[in-house]
Simulated assay, not measured.
Amino acid sequence: MKILRVRFEEGFIVVETDEECTISLPLSYFPRLNEATPEERENYRIFGDGQYVNFPDLDEDLYLPALLTGKRSRESEKSLNKWREWREKRKRSRS
């Protein structure tokens, strides 16, 4: 099974596979995606023979087998806060 495409609908990430499987999980499972702008969410690439999806603007990777089992992010609050600081610095440097 491989990831074909990703889309976002009303608070959910929706992942479609080549085996006509659709996985829909709440964005709240993935804090970085939940806090992202629509533009940041739409900037993704599928890699690793369709097993991973990467969101480069968010420094976030999702793994297909984890998505299939409904696993949510296990990122610590400390790590998430460091990411927020990194993201803010990145935004300021681009403006």
Rank of each mutant, 00 (worst) to 15 (best):
S28L: 10
G70T: 09
N43W: 05
S95F: 02
P26H: 03
S93D: 01
E42F: 02
L25D: 03
S28M: 12
I3E: 00
P65W: 00
E19N: 12
E20N: 08
R94S: 10
F8V: 04
E19K: 11
E60R: 12
R45T: 12
A66L: 07
E85T: 14
W86D: 15
P26K: 02
G11R: 04
E9T: 05
L4N: 02
N81D: 15
R45C: 14
K2D: 00
S28P: 10
P38M: 00
M1L: 09
Y52R: 05
Y52L: 13
R90L: 12
E85N: 13
D61W: 05
S93K: 01
L64S: 01
S95D: 07
Y63C: 08
E40L: 09
N81W: 15
T17Q: 06
G50I: 11
N81M: 15
L27A: 01
Y29T: 06
L68K: 15
R45V: 11
S24G: 06
E60S: 13
V6M: 07
P65N: 03
N81A: 14
T69W: 02
S93V: 01
A36W: 00
S95T: 06
F8A: 11
K78M: 11
R7F: 12
I46S: 15
L27Q: 03
C21K: 09
R72W: 13
L4D: 00
Y44C: 02
I13Y: 07
W83S: 13
E39W: 00
A66N: 13
Y52I: 04
F47W: 07
V53M: 00
E20Y: 00
W86Y: 12
P56S: 04
F47S: 13
N54C: 10
N43A: 02
L68T: 10
L33A: 05
W86N: 14
K89H: 07
R32L: 08
E9P: 03
W86K: 11
T37C: 12
R45E: 12
E16A: 14
